[in-house]
Structures are given as structure tokens and as C-alpha cells.
Computed example of a mutant assay.
Amino acid sequence: MDSHNRPLEGLPSAPRIRRGLLTAAAVTLALLAPAAPAHANPTPAEIEKQIDAQWNKLEPVIEEHNATKIKLTKQKKKADELNAQLAPLEQQVLVTRTRIGVLADQLYRGGALAQANAFLSSGDAGAMAERLLVLDQLAHDKKSRIADVLAAKSALDEVKRPLDELVAQLTKTEAEQAARAKAIEAEIKKLNKLRLDAYGSQSGIGELAPVPCPTSYPGGAGAQAVKYACKQIGKIYVWGAAGPDNFDCSGLTMAAWRAAGVSLPHNAKAQRAEVKSVSRSELRPGDLVFYYSDLHHVGMYAGNGWIVHASRSGLPIRMRKMDDGNIHSYGRPA
């Protein structure tokens, strides 16, 4: 074989060279290709905006649900009143029918044969005829009485029928609204978990805010109020002050709720008199927690058993456990 046609030993063949070039080109393209944009996790503020949006959906549903429950209670009361009127009429029909049962069988089922037998069994035709007339009149009177009762019952039934239909519709609507509210509340709960995850283990402002403030975000006016109060952490208590640089206890809660569009007096006891009472189990961030029998202190609930408050002169606004004080009651501005 001619030596010029033999491949040189130790050198790669042409197919290997082509494969190597293709591989190098692919690596080069991969290196030059722009990196896929990284998706940053949402910040607490961004999640709070989502919660606000969900709350704006939830609050109208809650109000509609409350209005439906009020209507349903009223209509059920009307239906109960009509049922109370129908009950004696139904009983009257039953009693009257029972009393004339035997008589109806004799006079109207037995017919002429029963009358003839009765006539033949009597020795006095005039007396028998009189008896038959009396029985016939009694039957007629009782039939008329039943007819009157049935007419009255029918009239009440006609009034009650649309009422029953309305009660049924309101009951269905109430259930649908409750289901919608529950679904939105579940979404808010999930968003609140994301919010806490976004905060991670941050402690806010050290010992003044050992946990995120608020610890959960309810949405709505309460959320706006508690966010305002939380932003004041670190500012110094000054008696009689209501912001923007210093606050006393009721000045802080007044200013916070003013930021949410609700007016409150600058006095803890007066605030207690103006706000709606809520139970401990109903508390949500933004609610007010009142302390001591003379109501001389108020803080704002921040969730999970924490409040944010202005405690006393010279100290900064801070968070603390709600139960570190003699609680008087709880209230919700509106």
C-alpha cells in the first residue's frame, strides 16, 4: 500500500475533529447565552399589598353576609309567627274531622240505605224524620266549619309559601357567602405565612420589636392602623403627645387609627367608650387592648399575643407580650 494514503499515526481522525468542534461550539454558545433572570422572593411589603387586595375582596363579602344573616333572622321570625297561627288551625281541622267521622260515614257513605234503615227501625215516622233533619243539619254545620277552617289555613299557606321560598333562598345565599369568605380567609392565611417567611428570623429593631410587627397582617383599616403604630417603634413617650415625633399611649392609638381614617379621642377611657367590644378570641391586629380598672393605659394588638404601645415617659415605643399587664377589655374601632 502507498504510504502517502495512510493516516498519520497519533493524529485524530476527521470525524473526531468534527465532533470536537461541535462540542466546543455548543459550550461557547452556552457560555454566551444570557442567564435566565432570577425570580426574587416577594418582600413583606409586596405580600402586604396582596393581603390588602384580598381583604378588599373579603370585607364586602363579610358585610353582605352580615346583612343576609339579619334579613334571614327577620324572615325566619315572620315564618315562625305564621307557623304559630297555622298550628291551631291545623289542630282544629283535625279535631272537627274526627268528631264528624262517624256521622259522615253514616249519612254520606251509607246514603239512602242508611236513612231507610234508620226510618224502618223507628216506630214514629215524624220523630225519625225530625232526627234525620237534625243529623243532616249537624253534618252541614260541621262541614261548613271545616270549610271555614280550611279556607283560613289556605289563606295563611298562601302568605307563608313565598316567605318559605325567601327563607330557603337566603339560607342558600348565606351559605355561599360564608364559603366565599372562608376561601378568601384561607388565602390571607397563606399570604401571612409567606409574609413571616419573608421576614425570616429578623427581629425588627432588636429588643424593641422581638418579632415582626405586626406578627400577622389582617388587611383593611386595622392593618393600616397597626402598620402605622409599628413604624413608630423607637420613638420616645412624651405625655400629651400624638405624633409625629413623640406619643403617649392614647396618642399613639389615636394617630394610628387616624391614619386608617378613623377618629378617636386622645384618652384611653374615652376610646374604650367609643369602640366596639370584642372578645379575646376575636382579636386581630389593630384592635385596642385596655388595661387596669381605671382604664389609664391602652396598647394596640399586633398579633400572636403581642401589643405595640407607648409605655411611660422617657421610654421608647416598643412591643411587649399582651398579658404583661392587667387587661381590662378589648375594642375595635370602626
Rank of each mutant, 00 (worst) to 15 (best):
A151R: 07
S144G: 14
K172Q: 14
L150P: 02
K160D: 15
E158W: 02
C213G: 08
A181T: 03
R161Q: 13
T215C: 00
P212D: 09
L163G: 11
Q177L: 14
Q169Y: 00
P214D: 02
Q169D: 13
I184E: 06
H140G: 05
Q224D: 02
R145W: 03
L191P: 04
Q202Y: 05
L156A: 12
Q177V: 01
V149F: 10
A198N: 06
K160V: 08
G206M: 06
A223K: 05
I146R: 11
A183N: 11
E174P: 01
P210K: 10
A183W: 04
E165K: 12
N192M: 03
I184K: 04
Q224E: 02
A152R: 15
K142G: 04
G220P: 07
I146M: 04
D141F: 03
V167M: 00
L194D: 15
R180K: 15
D197L: 09
I205S: 11
A198W: 07
R195S: 07
A147E: 10
Q202D: 11
V159P: 00
E185F: 01
E187L: 10
K190W: 00
E158G: 11
Q224G: 12
A152C: 00
R161E: 09
K182W: 01
A175M: 03
D141Y: 05
V159I: 12
V159N: 10
